[in-house]
Design a protein around this nucleic acid. Structure first.
Lengths: 205, 205
DNA sequence: GTCTATATCGCGATAGAC
DNA sequence: GTCTATCGCGATATAGAC
């Protein structure tokens, strides 16, 4: 008989501990960055000893890379890609953009993840490249195929257009949330959405 | 007689040393972030002893805040604001956007500065807010006044439009340079500029 | 497989000579 | 004002018992 859940009893299975280590590592690395994170605190927050952490991961670098890889593939890839993409562009595009932006603006873990990814892109170029390769490229592709399927929009350069849409949204999230711009130069998300729609539907007159 | 330049002789003036400390701190903090930076290396790269560093700055935090403040106000504020803003929109806007984007894409120090500012925005919220207050807000203001002076552009929401332009450029720089996207999904800057111009001139038909 | 205890090192910050 | 030498702490990583 195989134990199915970690919370089943006092004793923990091995995979349960690994999961707890990931949870502790997430809290620690997303809060303090790579250099600022402490392996003591990772172990403490995971509820295991430090030696146990090092028995499952080679060193701090190994744990960090494994964590970022897991978060990128399992948690934070679904900002655009999982949204429904069929129907009339004027309504579908607005729905997709609104939902994606709302999610970005409210998901503080996603924000912390991006912050750490940017911060450590110099020390860990592979992680940055993996984000481009596995997250950004497919998102642009899926979005681009939709736009190409709707030539009535008369978009001259679909890829540049998508980059403008995504870039505007990411930068808006950064200024308002990460840089605390909402306290200094507040602005409703709807205005960004309206302005982006205005751009996307430009050729339909 | 007052010594005018630091390189004048072997002995250094006090202000010369402070300047060297700032140079060392810039190299160190922009390369390793706040937590990853070492005060020993700051002193070493500045060519002074660690005690000298601490005689001019209270502690690591004080040096970091002073550095970021100096860089923000003296070095990296002039991406948009110093460009000439008068003349026919179709040519002026293209010139300004092209020059600003080229500068962002080639200035690796500016990129490192933004990376550190994002990374430490959680630990040092005042620095992030100062960036918004002293750099972003005036930029939007100046750009916005120009757009408002040209109602023939028929822009429905000038501030949202400016945020889209700036956000697209910053995000393009981040993906291509900081995330190494130029190696994986290369794209000419001109295509972004063309697409943004297409958006800005939308209402002039 | 997991723990406690420890080795070793580099860090931020300072004391005291000059 | 600047230096050398050092203190005390917390960091990563491991040894060895169970």
């Amino acid at each position: 008989m195989v134990r199915t859940k970690a919370s089943e009893s006092e004793r923990e299975s091995t995979v349960g501990k690994i999961d707890k280590i990931f949870q502790g590592a997430m809290q620690e690395f997303l809060a303090h960055g790579y250099a600022g994170a402490s392996m003591d605190r990772v172990a403490s927050q995971a509820g295991v000893s430090k030696a146990t952490v090092y028995s499952h991961f080679k060193d701090k670098e190994g744990l960090f890379k494994a964590l970022i890889h897991q978060l990128a593939t399992e948690k934070f890839q679904n900002t655009f890609a999982t949204l429904p993409l069929d129907g009339e562009p004027a309504v579908v595009l607005r729905t997709v953009i609104t939902k994606a932006l709302d999610k970005m603006m409210s998901d503080t873990q996603h924000q912390a993840f991006l912050r750490v990814l940017i911060a450590e892109s110099g020390r860990f170029p592979e992680l940055a490249k993996a984000w481009i390769q596995d997250i950004m490229t497919p998102t642009i592709e899926i979005f681009g195929e939709y736009l190409d399927r709707h030539p009535e929009l008369n978009i001259p350069d679909t890829e540049a257009t998508i980059r403008i849409v995504i870039g505007s949204m990411v930068h808006f999230m950064m200024t308002q949330e990460i840089f605390y711009g909402k306290e200094i130069m507040p602005m409703e998300s709807d205005r960004m959405v309206d302005c982006l729609m205005h751009h996307l539907l430009r050729g339909m007159d």
